[in-house]
Simulated assay, not measured.
Amino acid sequence: MIATASLILLGLACVWLAWIDLREGIIPDWLNLLIAAIGLVRMAALAGWVPAVAMLCEGIVIGAIVWLLRWLYFKWRKFQGLGLGDVKLLAASAVWIGIVGIPTQLLIASGTALAAAGLMRLSKRPVTRLTALPFGPFLAFGLLAVILLQQQG
Rank of each mutant, 00 (worst) to 15 (best):
L9Q: 00
L10N: 03
L12C: 11
L12G: 09
L12Y: 00
A13P: 08
C14L: 13
V15T: 07
A18F: 09
W19S: 05
I20F: 09
I20R: 06
D21K: 12
I26E: 14
I26K: 15
I27F: 11
I27K: 04
P28D: 12
D29H: 07
D29E: 12
W30V: 08
W30I: 08
I35K: 02
A36K: 04
A37F: 10
A37L: 15
G39Q: 00
L40H: 06
L40V: 06
R42A: 04
R42M: 02
A44G: 11
A44M: 12
A44T: 05
L46E: 15
L46C: 10
L46M: 15
G48S: 07
W49E: 05
P51V: 02
P51H: 08
A54W: 13
M55H: 15
I62P: 02
V66C: 07
V66D: 07
W67K: 04
W67I: 04
L68I: 13
R70P: 06
W71Q: 09
L72P: 02
L72R: 06
Y73M: 06
F74P: 00
K75Q: 15
K75T: 14
R77E: 15
R77T: 13
K78N: 15
K78E: 15
F79W: 04
F79H: 12
Q80F: 02
G81W: 09
L82D: 11
G85F: 00
D86T: 06
V87L: 10
V87M: 09
V87R: 05
L89Q: 04
A92M: 02
A92F: 00
S93D: 05
S93R: 03
A94P: 01
W96P: 03
W96I: 00
I97W: 09
G101L: 05
G101C: 08
I102V: 15
I102C: 09
T104C: 11
L106M: 14
L106A: 07
L107P: 00
L107M: 13
A109K: 04
S110M: 11
G111H: 08
L114E: 02
